[in-house]
Computed example of a mutant assay.
Amino acid sequence: MNAHATSEALVAVVTGASRGIGKGVALALGAVGATVYVTGRPREAGGAAPPGALQETAEAVTAAGGRGIAVGCDHSDDAQVLALFSRVGEESGRLDILVNNATALPESLFSPEPFWQKPLDVLAVLDVGLRSHYVASALAAPFMVRQRGGLIVNVSAYGSVNYLYGPAYGAGKAGLDKMAADMAVELRPHDVVAVSLWPGLVATERYTRLVEDNPHAFPPELRPESPEYTGRVVHALFRDPARMTLSGQTLIGAELGRRYGVSDVQGGQPPSYRELLGAPWTKPSRQTPD
């Protein structure tokens, strides 16, 4: 990764940044002076994101000290994603960090029925989540290969190895981990890092609603972390001169944060749930493509 890229010069794309983890990552990168292209749909399926939320994220990034640029983008539409990265090239000429966070979470995904009784719209989590992360990475990689440096982060989850919401969700998260491992093999000769990252329980808007409806929705041993924490960890990884040693790995955000001494917004460091929820698969030893 380009050691000459300073925090002030950073250019990042954070997908799915209208709210939640994506918004938190964008704010954290803005706080270190980065130019952050934030993507999302002003109105998402089910009306989950209010109108203007994406622009509000961009304005908050700017207020934090960076430069926030809102780009309306439906990540199920490849043409819109291509237009996004074309704009990044025209306006910034470089790209240092891509955080793949956009996803589709239809309400049917959270229903208690077994997968064979659920509507097939649950597969949206594979179209906008797994497939869209691949598309964004394929369009971001040429920037990073050309400048011989960059970081691609797939925001995954413990659901990669632990049952959560059924097989469509699990397959999507496991796919993100394997995708990062395989991308890393091909990116390594170009000094570009690719990882998959597992946040813990994150205090997003969805989390807040769930707790308000059911104060006992989550086990008491799960302590939520802020959405910004993931962004702080991503930035610390980018700044690590030895980051290439982690390329291809699936990393637990709390453990990576401890490695770098990253504190959460309210201080302290979130716990790892490795023992409770599972550990990443061991990466393969083969590190070169045919």
Rank of each mutant, 00 (worst) to 15 (best):
V125T: 05
V125R: 15
V125G: 03
V125Q: 07
V128M: 04
L130W: 13
L130T: 04
V135G: 00
S137K: 02
L139V: 01
A140V: 01
P142R: 12
P142Q: 07
P142A: 01
P142V: 15
F143D: 03
M144W: 01
R148Y: 09
G150A: 11
I152E: 14
N154Y: 15
V155W: 10
S156M: 03
S156Y: 01
S156G: 09
A157M: 05
G159N: 09
S160E: 13
S160R: 02
V161P: 11
L164N: 01
G170I: 00
A171Q: 15
K173Y: 04
K173P: 15
A174T: 13
L176Q: 12
D177G: 04
M179F: 10
A180C: 06
A180Q: 08
A181W: 05
M183W: 11
A184K: 03
A184N: 04
A184M: 12
V185I: 06
V185A: 09
V185D: 14
E186F: 14
H190V: 04
D191T: 14
S196D: 13
S196T: 12
L197P: 04
L197M: 08
L197W: 14
W198R: 11
P199S: 12
G200I: 00
G200M: 01
V202T: 09
A203E: 14
A203N: 13
T204A: 02
R206Y: 07
Y207W: 07
Y207E: 10
L210V: 05
L210H: 01
